[in-house]
Simulated scan of single mutants.
Amino acid sequence: MSKNASDIAEHTASATQREFPHSDNVAVMPERRDLHFLPPGDRISDWHQAGPNVTQFMNALSLLFPAGERMFIDAVRSYRDEIPDPDLKKAATAFIGQEAMHSREHIEYNALMDAAGLPAAKLDQFTWRLLDWIKAKTPKSFPLAATIALEHYTALMGDMLLRYPEMMNGSQEDFERMWRWHALEEIEHKAVAYDVYEKCIGRGPRNWVERSAAMAAATALFWPIVASFYWQMSRADEKCRKAGVRGHLKLLNFALGKPGYIRRMVPEWLSYFQYSFHPWQQNNADLLAELDELVENAEAAYATHH
């Protein structure tokens, strides 16, 4: 077993468990990894094996990350000095580092869309303005509550991508590797913001009401924005225009029909509204076993490009 895999196993063991509401919850210590992916710009509109419409759906998701991850960073950082648990404070610092790396790589990824004539900059600016408005108009605790809601989404999407490799198999390897890295780290740090919320704001009815309201608001905003971004990206992409209605139907099947990767997330999404919810109730730390190999492959690919 490699050193990093050993670390994962160690941090998953009871010796590093923190006090969660349920004894079977698992704590995994996240690690900041400075990786570069450099996906090829000439594949930005057709990198996914399922075709251009699924490609633009994934691209639309990528457009949400730079501003979203900045909100996550700011929300956790605003409470970091109040965290009483030194292990959780260490995890919060690693969470901030991981999200900063995700933001950097998605900014570079999103720039490829602009270079290809897609409306990425306009859509990215919309996201920044919206999230800046939310941060300015809500209490300090709400951006953190929104963060734990959206982190639940990203962890579920990451789980889906890793649990069903056929979702990405056959896609252009640099894009696929980048999405898998992001998925792995979203699972690795999926409970950090939640634990910060519980330690700094508390458990109980207030926790449940605020985080449930934040999830309802996040859901009401997230999917219409994703749908709008996808529509604008697909309208600007020649391959999607040529695919016509069939392309949109193919995406609907991918997301909601069969295989229906987004539809499959619904039961775990609903679990968030349980009073006793904790992210590690879905114990999927086993998916992190591929981290070592992915890091090695990413570093080798980057060295080859250079």
Rank of each mutant, 00 (worst) to 15 (best):
A5W: 03
S6P: 01
D7H: 13
I8Y: 01
I8N: 01
E10C: 13
T16F: 15
Q17S: 15
D24K: 15
V26F: 03
A27N: 10
P30T: 09
R33P: 04
G41K: 09
G41R: 08
D42W: 11
R43C: 08
I44M: 08
W47D: 04
H48Y: 06
G51Q: 03
V54I: 08
M58F: 09
M58V: 10
N59C: 04
A60F: 00
L64Q: 04
F65C: 08
R70M: 12
M71V: 14
M71C: 09
Y79T: 04
R80C: 00
E82G: 11
D85G: 06
K89S: 11
A94H: 00
H102W: 03
S103W: 02
R104M: 13
E105Y: 05
E105L: 10
H106M: 12
E108C: 12
Y109M: 10
Y109G: 04
G117R: 03
L118F: 02
A120W: 00
A121Q: 15
K122G: 09
L123F: 02
D124Y: 10
D124N: 12
W128T: 08
L131V: 09
K135Q: 12
A136R: 11
A136Y: 01
T138R: 04
T138Q: 01
S141A: 14
L144K: 05
L150P: 00
Y153H: 05
G158N: 05
D159F: 08
S171C: 07
D174I: 01
F175A: 00
R177A: 06
W179R: 02
H182G: 00
A183S: 11
E185W: 00
K190F: 02
K190L: 07
A193C: 01
Y194Q: 11
E198A: 13
K199T: 13
G204E: 08
E210G: 08
A214P: 04
A217R: 10
A217V: 14
T219G: 11
L221Q: 11
W231S: 07
Q232S: 05
S234V: 11
R235C: 09
E238D: 14
K239L: 15
C240G: 07
G244N: 09
L249S: 13
K250L: 14
L252S: 15
N253V: 06
L256T: 09
I262H: 02
R263A: 10
E268D: 12
W269C: 00
Q274C: 14
Q274H: 09
Q282M: 15
Q282G: 06
Q282K: 15
L287F: 10
E290M: 12
L291M: 12
E293G: 15
E293C: 10
L294W: 03
E299Q: 12
A300D: 06
H306A: 07
